[in-house]
Simulated scan of single mutants.
Amino acid sequence: MSLSEKVAQLFMVGTPVDAVNDTTLAAVRDDGVGGLFLHGRSTDDINATAALVDQFTGFASSELPLWVATDQEGGQVQVLSGPGFDDIPSAVEQGEMDADALRSAAATWGEQLARAGITMNLAPVADIVPNGSAATNPPIGALHRQYGGDEKAVAAGAGAFAAGMRDAGILPTLKHFPGLGYVTANTDFSTGVVDDVVTAGGPDMGVYRTLLGEGAAVVMMSTAIYANIDPELPAAFSSDVISLLRDDIGFNGVITTDDLSAASQVSAWPPAQRATMAIDAGVDLLLVSSDPSVYPEMRDAVLERAKDDPDFASKVDAAAHRIAAAKAE
């Protein structure tokens, strides 16, 4: 692969779930980007979603498969809910199910995604929200996205959901490392979001250690700042946080960011800098979901930095190899 082809694989670019974004289509057709993300909410039937996906996959120019992803957690975070897609219960409700029953249900939900042409689900949530604190945790607890209030419950629920997705041929994504269950603001809409609870040796790490031993998955980085690990940078830009995943837990698979295009938490950095900082820190896949218009600026910044900086180029190369290996698997 050429350097530009490798760089393109490091991006997952968004389109509205019911429309073709021209910038995203060009990214798929002309650059061969690694992934497509369907964002928003749709009550269209499964065939309409499949037809939308076909408009992109039909133009895919990379020799590697195009990852097609969405957020199909259940409850208040379910992008696809039209005819052909089940009404998926929230993670809180899923966590009350027997593990085998949840795995079977998730396999059915995954089969529905597969019929729509989707290959990756940015779920399940692996964040611990302590019992009794959900109302003060806007991004997870207030939306009933958590599987439980302790390490064991979250690992069991998220593990069953992820296993069901894999049974259906859908690659699950565990999020949001190293944990968003204690923050009191939402990184999508707020700046200066800091976690002062998560530690390198705490139960939040234990959840990932368990889940990543159970099968293939992508891991999504949070954009909160973790005072006990790296008090300066959001996790997606922090080599100290990412090293916990790589070195302490031993994860050698694909690491993705949460959305870098429009989240308030990362707005202090220009889009180009967001992209290069994340890759420099050890991220593989950059999610540019809500505002694809910033993709060209991000792509150009990564490409130019890789041309000028051999160390950075080696990180691009390693990320492209991890993505290629995950797609092959």
Rank of each mutant, 00 (worst) to 15 (best):
P130D: 03
G58I: 01
P89V: 15
Q76W: 04
P83N: 07
P83V: 13
R103T: 14
F85K: 02
V68P: 03
G82A: 07
P83D: 15
L64Q: 06
L122V: 15
A116C: 05
V92A: 05
P65A: 02
V68M: 02
R115N: 14
G75A: 01
G95N: 01
P65R: 08
S104N: 13
D71M: 03
G132Q: 12
G95H: 01
Q78R: 06
G95Y: 00
Q72E: 02
I88D: 01
L122M: 13
G58L: 04
Q72H: 11
Q112E: 15
A69C: 08
P139G: 05
T119Y: 12
W109L: 02
T136K: 04
V68S: 02
D71W: 00
G141D: 04
A101D: 11
N131Y: 10
G82T: 09
A107S: 11
L122H: 09
A99S: 14
G132H: 06
R103E: 06
A116L: 08
D86Y: 03
S90C: 03
Q78H: 04
N137P: 12
S62N: 07
A135I: 13
L64E: 10
T70S: 04
G110R: 05
A116M: 12
V79P: 06
E73A: 00
R103L: 01
T119W: 14
F59E: 15
T108P: 11
P89A: 10
G84N: 01
G84H: 08
P89Q: 10
R103I: 11
A114P: 09
S133A: 12
Q78T: 15
R115T: 15
G141H: 09
I118S: 14
W67Q: 11
T108I: 14
D71S: 00
W67P: 03
P83W: 12
I128T: 06
P139W: 12
I118Y: 09
R115V: 15
S133C: 11
I88H: 02
T119D: 02
S90P: 03
G110A: 08
A135W: 09
